[in-house]
Write a protein that binds this DNA or RNA. Structure first.
Length: 476
DNA sequence: AATATTTTAGT
DNA sequence: CTAAAATAT
């Protein structure tokens, strides 16, 4: 029997073997497969620093997985069109498959490439799997995209058929001659200084195996308290799956089904978590219908908002030196660990946007660069949500009070103490507002404001009134 | 996915 | 008088 021509499986943000439609289609009938990852020139800058750290490690794990499956992984740098055309020439491949992505740049690249390959007689196909349902699937009765989450969830739940995850292949057939691969070590994806990301290793293990272990851990020990504890940054109460999802180390369908069928999980906890998972789909739905979501206000009323340029304040925010402990703890967690608890993300975002009146785009860019789970849909959609310019947004006048939020969600101050060690000895009663603590309490804790820990950058009450006044000017 | 302030109810 | 509820932002 003559050897079949190989299929190229182009890997993007789907760094997994399991539940991978493009890979399975490529390998069908023992066809030889060339798993190809391209470091794309055109998308330079799209990858943040923290995610580059993750990608470097995840690609190493993926390379091992493909070695075990028998094909290895081919790494190339450049334009996808050129790389793939060269590879077709070199290997005689007649098939190129990939899993879809939904960023405007990515979709443009993929659409043009698919057309060109098909014109050349190549079987080029794309597959679903990054999100639960295609972003174009849902529309309101009046024919447009959903603008509010609850109706989106209802439409989503009305037809909850999500295909069961496909198992990983046991083995793959390698092409007769393996194409040359660049060396991952030579890419030096993570170029941060030695001090940054040192703490990432303490809490993160990139790769598909770790993603699945984390899902097990969530289902076994965390999910049963999800609804009541998910807002508590001082407790291990969230799934921590977002960076794995961001690079596709686990599919949302896998999470959907494993949580959906988990034993001994109350319907409240199950539903609450699955709703959060579907928020991710909602963000992709929004991005699909508003491709400029990252740069333009979803609600154009905000185009006239009087954002303040204040580099000094922005710098203090990024470094966790605002003088508001819950804000500073969050920003320092972000820097040290490449993540931040969801509740605290809302608090720090509210502080930047409303207390400092700095444009949400600056915050979005900072998160994109420092979060290991930075996602092209969720990140801008949620920043706009906090700003009030986004879909189903928090009204602008919903201004978080960082002291009340701290007292409510970090009642013992443990979260603050973990990331703001200079407040280690502050009692819970005063840890979220050291600027209001009696002198003797500060002395006993060894804290001199303005020396050991910053004085507040702004007075929250005044800042709140200033933001409300600015909002009045763009109202109607 | 909020908070500050005012109003009303409860003792 | 305090606490809960309603209301404005």
């Amino acid at each position: 029997m003559p050897n079949k021509t190989p299929a190229i499986y182009w890997i993007r943000q789907d760094l997994r073997i399991n539940d991978n439609a493009a890979l399975m289609a490529a390998a069908k009938g023992d066809r030889p497969v060339i798993p190809l990852y391209i470091r794309e020139d055109d998308l330079a800058g799209a990858l943040g620093g923290a995610q580059a750290w993750w990608l470097e490690r995840s690609l190493a794990r993926l390379g091992e997985a493909y070695d075990e499956l028998g094909t290895g992984l081919v790494l190339k740098s450049g334009k996808p069109g050129t790389i793939i055309a060269d590879l077709i020439e070199e290997t005689g491949a007649e098939t190129v498959y990939w899993n879809r992505r939904y960023t405007p740049d990515g979709m443009r690249t993929d659409k043009a490439l698919k057309q060109k390959l098909r014109d050349d007689g190549i079987d080029a196909q794309s597959f679903a799997g990054r999100i639960l349902h295609e972003p174009s699937k849902f529309e309101t009765k009046s024919g447009g995209p959903y603008k509010v989450y609850t109706p989106f969830w209802k439409a989503f739940s009305a037809d909850p058929r999500i295909a069961d995850p496909q198992d990983a292949p046991d083995r793959l057939t390698a092409p007769d001659t393996k194409p040359q691969s660049e060396r991952l070590e030579d890419w030096k994806l993570y170029s941060g200084k030695p001090d940054w990301a040192a703490g990432f290793d303490d809490i993160w293990t990139p790769g598909e195996a770790a993603a699945n272990r984390q899902l097990d851990r969530f289902i076994d020990a965390i999910a049963e308290h999800y609804a009541s504890s998910r807002d508590r940054p001082d407790i291990e109460a969230t799934s921590m799956l977002s960076p794995h999802l961001a690079l596709g180390e686990i599919s949302p369908a896998t999470i959907w089904h494993r949580v959906g069928r988990a034993k001994d999980l109350s319907s409240e906890n199950r539903k609450k978590f699955l709703q959060e998972l579907v928020w991710r789909d909602f963000c992709y739905h929004l991005l699909f219908h508003a491709p400029d979501l990252r740069t333009e206000n979803w609600n154009s009323r905000f185009d006239g908002f009087a954002w303040q340029d204040n580099d000094e304040a922005f710098d203090a925010w990024t470094r966790g030196r605002t003088g508001y402990p819950i804000v500073d703890a969050g920003m320092r967690q972000l820097w040290q660990e490449g993540t931040m608890h969801n509740r605290v993300r809302m608090i720090v975002a509210s502080f930047l946007i409303k207390d400092l009146m700095i444009d949400w785009r600056k915050g979005e860019a900072w998160f994109r660069d420092t979060l290991v789970d930075a996602d092209p849909a969720s990140n801008p959609a949620n920043w706009q949500w906090v700003a009030g310019s986004g879909a189903d947004a928090s009204p602008f006048f919903r201004i978080f009070n960082p002291v009340l939020q701290g007292n409510k969600f970090d009642p013992q101050g443990d979260y603050v103490r973990r990331y703001v060690p200079e407040l280690e000895d502050m009692p819970a009663k005063h840890i979220h507002a050291p600027f209001d603590a009696p002198r003797d309490v500060l002395d006993a804790a060894g804290v001199t404001l303005g020396k050991d820990y910053p004085k507040p950058l702004v007075d929250h009450k005044k800042a709140r009134n200033r933001a409300l006044a600015a909002f009045e000017k763009i109202k109607d």
